[in-house]
Amino acid sequence: MTNGEKSYFDPLVLARLSNLYLKARWVVEGIMSGIHRSRSKGFSVEFEEHREYSPGDEIRRIDWKALGKFDRYFIKETEDETNLRAYLILDSSASMDYSSNGVTKFDYGCILTASLAYLILQQQDAAGLVTFSNRVESFIPPRAKRSYLMEILHALEGRRPSGETNVGKILEEIAGKIKRRGLVILISDLLDEPEEILKGLQLFRFKGNDVIVFHLLDAAELELPFDGNILFEDIEESSLRVTADPQAIRKVYRTVVQEFVEHLRKECREHAIDYQLLSTSTPLDHALVSYLGWRG
C-alpha cells in the first residue's frame, strides 16, 4: 500500500486540498445539519483504546475496572463523537476496470475515496467504506479514528474490480445496513438502469442521509474517440457486443451520454442529492476542488 498511499496522497494534490481544508470541513459539517465536531473527548459512548494515566489527566476518566484487573491506572480513551458519519461507497465492478489514458476508473475512484476518507478523518469525522459489484464486497463501518484511514486504504488496496454492476440493488442493500444517519458518498460509473440507481439513492434520502454522487466516466466513454470499424464488447457482459463505426455515431453517442448524465443530474437535484460528473482525465485535485467549490 506504500506505493498506493503515495499515489493516493500525491503531495501536489494534498497541497491544494489543504488550502481548502477549512472550507471542506465547513461544507461537510454544514450539510450535516450544522453539527460540528464533538465538544470534548471522553464523553463518547464509543470506546476507542486505553492508555496509561499521566499526571494532569482527569480523575473521572480513570478506568477503575482496569485498575482492579491490572493494578495500574489506565485512562479510557473514547472516540470523538460527531454527527458526520460518512459512508464511502465505491463501485468495484468490472466496468470500473476500464482505462483509455492509463488510469482506470477504479484507480481514480480509489484515489478519490482515499482522499475523501483522509479529508473526513482529518476533520475528526467518521468514515466508512463499502465496495461492491453485484454484491457488497466489503463493508467497513464508519469510524472517526485517524488510524482508521489505514484500514480503509488496505481495503481499497485489496480490492480489484470484477463482477457485474447492479447499483440499484446494492444501494438498497447498503441502505438496509446503515442504521444511523450520515453522509453517503457513492463513487461509481453508474452504468446501470438509471431508474434503479435513483431508486437506491432515494432510499438513503428517505433515511435522512445526505448523498453525494461522484459519477466517474472515462474520457473515452464520454467522447468515443475511436476510428475505423470496431467490434465493441461489453466488459461486464461479454455476450453484449456490437460492431460500429465510431466516427459515424460519435455525435449521437455524445448526445446519448449527455442525456444520461443530464437525467441523473436532474433527478438527483430533485431529490436533494449532490451529483458530480467526473472524468478520469480530470485531475483528481481539480475534481475535488471543483466539487468543493460547487458545494460552495
Partner: peptide, 12 residues
C-alpha cells in the same frame, strides 16, 4: 474489425 472491450456498449 478492431476489437475493443468497452464498458458503455449500451450507449453505442
Amino acid at each position: 474489425l478492431k476489437r475493443i472491450r468497452f464498458p458503455a456498449v449500451r450507449f453505442i
